[in-house]
Computed example of a mutant assay.
Amino acid sequence: MTVARHTTVASPIEMAEVFPQVVPFARVATRLHPRKGSPGVEQSSVGGPLLWPADEPWPGCGGEHPEDHLDAGPDDPARGPLVPVLQIFAADVPDLPFPAGTDMLQVLWCPFDHQPWYSPRPHLRWRRRADVGTRRETMPTPHEDADPALVPDPCTVDPEPVVEYPSHDLPPEVWGQIDDTVRRVAERTGWQYEYDLSEASGTKVGGYPGWTQSPDWPVCECGTGMSHLLTIASWEFSRGDEKRWIPVEDRPAMTGWSFDGDDDHPWRAVQNPAGIMLGDAGGIYLFVCPSCPERPFDYRFDCS
């Protein structure tokens, strides 16, 4: 595993001393730090080509019901290929809970809005790299009517583990214990628990979902609560003046940032390298069952 080239600022607050109530809820997340590039099929990537067996059909989506493709007309099922969203190798993110006998995760989705959340519908494949054999040479072209905002641009990734604490997922009784401290820390230092000290922004593996709305954790058919597998985020950070989640190495590119500025300004390539937009700057959260060996999955979507 290579050394991360993007560095998240360490927490400026000694959490165990200032917020001891949240320490038991700490989780490790791996920020992927996607950046526009030309990844190969043997690399972990966002929106890049997938290491796909040549003799395995490429999955498509016509929608289970005519209304599934909300952006298509009633007579056009928009039947077309799924698009690559994410490929992760175990060597790059060893903490990802791979099923036994696998070392690669691939995520694809349909680049049309689907019920029930008006979002892309994800599809997961777990593989063993050594079993791929003869590989597919090219990826299918997305459907001509696919929403460009739902087709990620190819990005390399630079995994970096960070420690997270929950905000939306913090139990109400714990919020009651830290509420005054949260306010005092913000007044004294400017650091805000919800934005700077809890969940990491951006596309990541593990940790906590970056909920915008109230948490909605799925439950497996076996009755087990599912675990957060990964988040695909529209933005790697929400504000150009964020103190914590913009990597140190990217700070110079933020000079002169503005949401209303030039589309070619370097800060835009840092904030939204894959060029996707899920609803109103939302995210798709994938979950897996930690108890079932085959790792059944579910997903949720929310936005502001």
Results as ranks from 00 to 15, higher is better:
residue 133 G to W: 01
residue 133 G to A: 04
residue 133 G to F: 01
residue 133 G to K: 03
residue 134 T to V: 15
residue 134 T to D: 04
residue 134 T to W: 01
residue 134 T to E: 06
residue 135 R to Q: 10
residue 136 R to K: 09
residue 136 R to E: 05
residue 136 R to F: 11
residue 136 R to W: 07
residue 136 R to S: 09
residue 137 E to C: 07
residue 137 E to M: 13
residue 137 E to S: 13
residue 138 T to P: 05
residue 138 T to Q: 08
residue 138 T to E: 05
residue 138 T to V: 13
residue 138 T to M: 05
residue 138 T to Y: 06
residue 138 T to A: 11
residue 139 M to C: 05
residue 139 M to Q: 11
residue 139 M to K: 07
residue 139 M to Y: 00
residue 139 M to W: 01
residue 139 M to T: 14
residue 139 M to D: 08
residue 140 P to K: 05
residue 140 P to S: 09
residue 140 P to F: 10
residue 140 P to W: 08
residue 141 T to N: 03
residue 141 T to F: 02
residue 141 T to V: 15
residue 142 P to M: 07
residue 142 P to Y: 00
residue 142 P to L: 04
residue 143 H to W: 13
residue 143 H to P: 14
residue 143 H to E: 04
residue 144 E to T: 14
residue 144 E to V: 14
residue 144 E to S: 13
residue 144 E to M: 06
residue 145 D to W: 00
residue 145 D to M: 00
residue 145 D to Y: 00
residue 145 D to F: 00
residue 145 D to N: 10
residue 146 A to R: 04
residue 146 A to E: 06
residue 146 A to H: 09
residue 146 A to T: 12
residue 147 D to T: 01
residue 147 D to C: 00
residue 147 D to G: 00
residue 147 D to Q: 00
residue 148 P to E: 06
residue 148 P to N: 06
residue 148 P to V: 13
residue 148 P to H: 02
residue 149 A to G: 08
residue 149 A to H: 10
residue 149 A to N: 11
residue 149 A to V: 13
residue 149 A to S: 14
residue 150 L to E: 09
residue 150 L to S: 08
residue 150 L to D: 08
residue 151 V to P: 07
residue 151 V to F: 04
residue 151 V to D: 04
residue 151 V to I: 15
residue 151 V to K: 04
residue 151 V to E: 03
residue 152 P to I: 15
residue 152 P to A: 14
residue 153 D to R: 15
residue 153 D to T: 15
residue 153 D to N: 13
residue 154 P to D: 08
residue 154 P to N: 08
residue 154 P to F: 02
residue 154 P to S: 07
residue 155 C to W: 03
residue 155 C to D: 11
residue 155 C to P: 15
residue 156 T to G: 09
residue 156 T to Q: 05
residue 156 T to R: 07
residue 156 T to L: 12
residue 157 V to G: 04
residue 157 V to K: 01
residue 157 V to M: 03
residue 157 V to L: 07
residue 158 D to A: 04
residue 158 D to H: 00
residue 159 P to L: 01
residue 159 P to G: 11
residue 160 E to A: 14
residue 160 E to H: 08
residue 160 E to M: 12
residue 161 P to S: 06
residue 161 P to M: 04
residue 161 P to Q: 03
residue 161 P to H: 05
residue 161 P to R: 03
residue 161 P to L: 09
residue 161 P to N: 02
residue 162 V to H: 02
residue 162 V to S: 02
residue 162 V to Q: 01
residue 163 V to T: 15
residue 163 V to G: 05
residue 163 V to R: 03
residue 163 V to A: 06
residue 163 V to I: 14
residue 163 V to N: 02
residue 163 V to L: 06
residue 163 V to D: 02
residue 163 V to W: 00
residue 164 E to M: 09
residue 164 E to Q: 11
residue 164 E to G: 08
residue 165 Y to A: 05
residue 165 Y to W: 09
residue 165 Y to F: 15
residue 166 P to E: 03
residue 166 P to C: 10
residue 166 P to I: 11
residue 167 S to E: 07
residue 167 S to I: 02
residue 167 S to F: 13
residue 167 S to V: 04
residue 167 S to P: 00
residue 168 H to Q: 12
residue 168 H to V: 15
residue 169 D to Q: 15
residue 169 D to E: 15
residue 169 D to T: 14
residue 169 D to W: 00
residue 169 D to A: 11
residue 170 L to N: 11
residue 170 L to D: 10
residue 170 L to I: 11
residue 170 L to F: 03
residue 170 L to P: 12
